[in-house]
Design a protein around this nucleic acid. Sequence first.
DNA 1: CTGCGGCCTCCCGTAACGTGAGAGTCAAGC
DNA 2: GCTTGACTCTCACGTTACGGGAGGCCGCAG
Lengths: 256, 256
Amino acid sequence: MAGFSVGQVAAFAGVTVRTLHHYDEIGLLSPSERTAAGYRRYAEPDLDRLQQVLFYRELGFPLEEITAILDDPGADAATHLRRQRELLRRRIARLESLAEAVETALEAARMGVSLTPEERYEVFGEFRPEDHAEEAESRWGGTSAWAESRRRTSSYGKADWQRITSEAGELVEAWRALFEQGVPAGSAEAMAVAEGHRRHISRWFYECTHEIHGCLGEMYVADERFARNYEQVAEGLAVYVRDSITANARAAGGPV
Amino acid sequence: MAGFSVGQVAAFAGVTVRTLHHYDEIGLLSPSERTAAGYRRYAEPDLDRLQQVLFYRELGFPLEEITAILDDPGADAATHLRRQRELLRRRIARLESLAEAVETALEAARMGVSLTPEERYEVFGEFRPEDHAEEAESRWGGTSAWAESRRRTSSYGKADWQRITSEAGELVEAWRALFEQGVPAGSAEAMAVAEGHRRHISRWFYECTHEIHGCLGEMYVADERFARNYEQVAEGLAVYVRDSITANARAAGGPV
DNA sequence: CTGCGGCCTCCCGTAACGTGAGAGTCAAGC
DNA sequence: GCTTGACTCTCACGTTACGGGAGGCCGCAG
């Protein structure tokens, strides 16, 4: 007889019969045939599809999304493969960075050196760009600013990013200098830096109004991850930055 | 105030507040303090633990198991780290083999070569030793034969494996020759090959009695994955192999 | 014809949260 | 000092991706 029974396919693919039933129920993978008695018969193309399903599933895609991906008529086999390659690349990179972190920690343990909390957070919870991207998406994924930012940054090369980070570093440095010299956050100098920061964002990421800038300022204090970035430079800098941003926004366009 | 609120920790770790509530409920991660109003307050050690939790979660561990792992008093930090390193290593290797498979498929697509079904299964559903190991564990994970096999094979080097596969290849070849010459499966020659196969298993993997061998024979036919291995060599060979094994077992020790 | 293993369809259970509902808390601003 | 909006609390039901039987066909070996 042509085709395979559920049990065969299940054993073959390393899944349970129940799983195949489930995939049939939700229309993700329905066998192309049934026997007279109602037995499922899986043909070769069904097995192909199952492999695709398992692949995406392994990478954590929800089944509904997998259905959409595989049923997309605009995507041929090569498209899927390229996509899968990219997904794997990212996933591997993520795991490797985790592995590296573990290695560092292990080395430290062997040496009897105890890592400071900062060092430990650095590797997992901290501000790696990758993490930031993932988390940013989950937070602002639907907003237009996000879309714009995404659109723009996609075309940036290495040189651009170097320039961006160096500019950002200069801004932080300027803030730090003023802060440590005791220049108030509401001063013209501090507000100037804040304005520079706003333009920096507008230039490289998305149209950042004073209002939005004010929200960002708040977040730099409220959100531990952002706050840490400033607090590491100088204790109290996050609040100072926020205050200068708020002052600048207030001066430019009324209350925040 | 010392400590962090749920919201802060959630944003910090990239999880939702609900997740933290859940972890508190099931006793996986309870904040070390509460305010007078009942607000959760997470301290530094709590954040450390959360990182461990997230790490194991990322690798697919069920929360209950994570609880057990982290609450195990016999495991210190270094133990955890070594364990995590090993887990990561495996996971990366798995993904890399997947990536390799995708790469091959892509190359084939670029060349306009269409892979045969066999070639395609080879990479994902087929008989890669890794897959086999995983699936075998889920099937025979508790049996003593499995444990013995595991114990023995762990010490084999590359040379051993070459020898094993070459021996196995010779056995299949011998079966194929007899089969194609029309020598019956119940003949002395075929039974001799079967006996060689049984000894091969006994020598390299586990004590394979005639009875066990009979079961294996049945499986070589019933299980599509094993059957394919033989059917690829010659159509009908799986059944032939099983029959010769059965005949050999019957001749040696009564009915199977 | 009679097991017996495989398959069928419900259908309830579970893990790990998502998602409000309704109510209390708290720092900020008028 | 009082409101207000953001944050928090505790139920409590909803969801995803199945697990695991119950009860009943199907099909073939003995």
